[in-house]
């Protein structure tokens, strides 16, 4: 079950630009050092995943949940025990004005 270092010889490489692209998708900014470390660490993890290729999954349905339940809904009514006051909602916000969340600018003139 354990991997051995020989596998690392056939390692799949996530390049620096792969990592930067993924960081962008993830909304993360990374330092040079983090990019280097992630590229090495994740390459070895992804190489380990290669072992899945040996399984035959032809005609096997994917599983996304294990309960077998479908469409569990509650009545479409407001439950006042489940609602929060405006004060509670704003309490943890770092920056707000007139009970509105202040967000960073994403569009430039």
């Amino acid at each position: 079950m354990l991997y051995n270092s020989e596998d690392l010889l056939n390692m799949i490489h996530l390049t620096k630009s792969d990592i930067l692209h993924l960081a962008k998708l993830s909304g993360l900014t990374l330092t040079e050092k983090e990019v280097k470390e992630l590229s090495y660490d994740l390459s070895s993890v992804i190489t380990f995943f290669e072992e899945l290729k040996e399984t035959n999954t032809k005609n096997i349905l994917p599983t996304s949940q294990t309960t077998g339940l479908e469409n569990i809904t509650r009545a479409d009514k407001i439950d006042t025990n489940q609602t929060l006051s405006l004060e509670d909602v704003m309490y943890n916000a770092n920056d707000n004005k007139n009970n509105l969340f202040k967000v960073p600018i994403i569009l430039k003139k």
Partner: peptide, 12 residues
């Protein structure tokens, strides 16, 4: 190759 395959092996 990764996510879908993993959900199928999950079934197995």
């Amino acid at each position: 190759a990764y996510y879908k395959k993993a959900t199928q092996v999950r079934t197995l």
